[in-house]
């Protein structure tokens, strides 16, 4: 879609009234178009004023506990030894988060490069005696390793020198169990800076990690193409 066609769809996007494929087109465009980002801000504000049109309902008190517990359990899965914590903090700052943030992410990555030697941080991960290391091989170039601890379910992908997948495209990481790959996040390579993607999973269930090239910024629900990199986990 052209800029003008996308622009016509921005109000509908703000109302979540686009078909999924159209929404993906808009998101891909938003990542690189400041004008459309500004427009979206205007329409999202207007949409938010509709949010207060719903009848006020009080959520059950028990829901609060469930939500806080769910978040806490996710937090605990991130709580490892001191070395891991530092590494994951660095990784967390670098993780590619979903939804059209490519620009601000690049800026943030640029800022971080100066003060965080993230490869050193990743080495803390690699140095943990309990963790296992898999090197992915394939056609995307670069040096891509996956380090994980089967006991705690903690892992991270560390990628350097991957070639640019092309504008509007991302690398998507998959955990493969039988014929059913599960998405473990999307990322774009960053020249000169290692990309670290933290992954929490029950690793013994999976046979392999794989990376495919998918449409940005959110990737795909299932791989749409053959993987460009694969590493065997030895599970399953």
């Amino acid at each position: 879609m052209t800029h003008d066609e996308i622009r016509e769809s921005i109000p509908g996007y703000a109302l979540h009234a686009l078909a999924p494929e159209d929404a993906r087109d808009v998101e891909a465009h938003l990542a690189t178009c400041a004008e459309c980002q500004r427009e979206l801000g205007v329409f999202e504000d207007a949409a938010a004023s509709l949010a207060i049109g719903f009848a006020p309902e009080e959520p059950p008190a028990a829901l609060r506990r469930r939500v806080l517990d769910a978040v806490r359990s996710r937090r605990r899965t991130g709580a490892l030894g001191v070395g891991w914590t530092a590494a994951l903090a660095a990784a967390a700052a670098l993780i590619v988060v979903l939804a059209g943030v490519a620009l601000s992410l690049e800026q943030r990555l640029g800022a971080l490069t100066a003060r965080v030697d993230s490869e050193t941080q990743a080495l803390a991960l690699l140095a943990d005696p309990a963790s296992r290391l898999v090197t992915l091989s394939g056609s995307a170039g670069g040096r891509v390793r996956f380090v994980f601890d089967p006991a705690t379910g903690r892992g991270a992908l560390v990628a350097t020198g991957l070639r640019n997948p092309g504008s509007d495209l991302v690398y998507q990481l998959w955990l493969v169990a039988g014929a059913a790959p599960h998405s473990a996040g999307v990322f774009r390579p960053s020249s000169g800076t290692p990309v670290i993607v933290a992954v929490g999973a029950d690793f013994p269930r999976y046979q392999a990690v794989a990376i495919s090239v998918e449409r940005g910024p959110n990737g795909a629900a299932r791989p749409s193409a053959a993987p460009v990199l694969v590493g065997k986990l030895g599970g399953g």
Binding site: E44, D45, I95, V97, L98, V101
Partner: peptide, 21 residues
């Protein structure tokens, strides 16, 4: 919100609009 807070960009809108969205 917990997972995606890092994706929130204050330059692009208010936190309230983002959360309601």
């Amino acid at each position: 919100i917990w997972r995606g807070a890092r994706a929130f960009d204050p330059a692009r809108g208010s936190a309230r609009t983002w959360i309601l969205s």
